[in-house]
């Protein structure tokens, strides 16, 4: 069908980089992440009937991708020789309790890292929803780290426009992030 052709192209254009960022927030291997995103699209295409506009397409794709990442972790885990028995000795005491204490990461810091990764990704998602001009200002300021004068020249705005835009963009981002938190 000709109209479904447009859909898949649009889908790839609009969602692939976001999905890749999502995968990379949980994985370290770029090639693996790309493979999983590709698998996600393939699954999605074959299951398009079950989508039925029930939710946001991005949310739907992200949930498929997340499933694939978890499956990957599970497979990777079974490849190791029983992680529990290598951690405990025969009497059930943790072998490395004292030895490795210096190098161990606190659970708190890991959890903190996970939520930070997710929050950062969510922020990306929120920035994409900003009006194009505001998004341009935010990208020049924070991603390209341009000085204010250059941003104003490039976007054809006055200095007072600049801080008003930043102010409003931040209000929207804050709103978007707190809503995401509630979901």
């Amino acid at each position: 069908m000709s109209d479904s052709k447009i859909d898949t192209e649009k889908l790839v254009e609009e969602q692939s980089d976001y999905l890749l960022s999502f995968a990379m927030s949980k994985l370290q291997d770029l090639e693996l992440a790309k493979d999983l995103v590709q698998d996600t699209f393939v699954s999605a295409i074959t299951k398009l009937d079950s989508f039925e506009n029930r939710s946001n397409i991005r949310t739907w794709l992200t949930s498929i991708l997340n499933r694939k990442i978890i499956d990957h972790w599970r497979k990777a885990e079974t490849r190791y020789t029983d992680p529990v028995s290598s951690f405990f000795d025969q009497e059930g005491r943790a072998k490395h309790w004292l030895v490795d204490k210096k190098n161990s990461t606190s659970v708190e810091s890991v959890v903190d890292k996970i939520t930070q990764e997710e929050a950062t990704l969510e922020l990306y998602n929120c920035i994409e929803k900003l009006p194009p001009k505001w998004r341009g200002v935010i990208a020049s300021k924070y991603l390209e780290e341009k000085v204010s004068e250059d941003i104003c020249k490039e976007m054809e705005i006055t200095p007072s426009n600049l801080w008003v835009i930043i102010h409003r963009a931040k209000l929207l981002l804050r709103d978007c992030l707190t809503k995401a938190e509630l979901q």
């Binding site: 980089d17 890749l20 960022s21 992440a33 929050a119 990704l121 922020l123 990306y124 924070y142």
Partner: peptide, 15 residues
Amino acid sequence: MMQSKRFKHLGEYQF
């Protein structure tokens, strides 16, 4: 958040 390395890296992952 927007000045963090993590944030900047995220935008670099593209097909």
